[in-house]
């Protein structure tokens, strides 16, 4: 890994830009079924904000904000949310990912329950895509030789 060259312009611009980027990613995930966007695109935008932090600062800053262990756990949690909602529909007696049946446990009529189920799926996809993007970039940016957890 090359040594770090501190640059006040790049650091200030990234410090100002990263929170709006993350807010926009959350908006894309949450507003995905009314407008273009969804879990995959929002997860990519959230992962890109961490990649921007990696470029502006160094790998220690990224690992301080998003620990390697937490990243792996989040990666599995998204898949668990996706599969869990699908299996929940199976348990309630409908097909896999047939969200309409969720109105039996949610305080909503079937159409609203369908929208909420889609929203849960989008959240799971977004979490998984974000953590996989961060993981891929951490591994290729340091050729897989990044050191352990920072103190």
């Amino acid at each position: 890994m090359k040594e770090r060259y501190p640059d006040v312009t790049i650091e200030t611009v990234c410090r100002l830009l990263i929170p709006p980027i993350q807010l926009f990613g959350l908006y894309v995930i949450a507003h995905g079924h009314y407008s273009p966007g969804g879990g995959f695109q929002g997860g990519c935008i959230l992962g890109a904000s961490f990649i921007m932090m990696f470029i502006a600062y160094d790998i220690g800053e990224v690992k301080r904000r998003m620990r390697e262990k937490l990243n792996t756990i989040l990666c599995a949690t998204g898949v668990l949310i996706y599969a869990g909602i699908g299996i929940l529909c199976l348990v309630l007696g409908a097909n896999y990912l047939d969200y309409g049946i969720l109105h039996q446990i949610l305080p909503a009529y079937p159409a609203k329950a369908r929208a909420l189920g889609t929203f849960g799926i989008e959240i799971g996809v977004g979490i998984t895509v974000m953590s996989v993007m961060i993981s891929i970039f951490l591994n290729i940016g340091t050729a897989g030789e990044h050191e352990g957890e920072p103190e």
Binding site: K2, V28, P36, G37, G38, F40, Q41, C44, I45, G47, A48, I51, I55, M133, I136, F137, I140, G141, A143
Partner: peptide, 26 residues
């Protein structure tokens, strides 16, 4: 096709360019 365009902008122009640059630095 606005949804496809959004995916292309997020993945093609954003993430994959960063991945390519990360690979080239190796």
């Amino acid at each position: 096709a606005v949804d496809v365009a959004f995916t292309e902008a997020a993945v093609g122009a954003g993430i994959s360019t960063a991945f390519f640059i990360g690979f080239i630095f190796q």
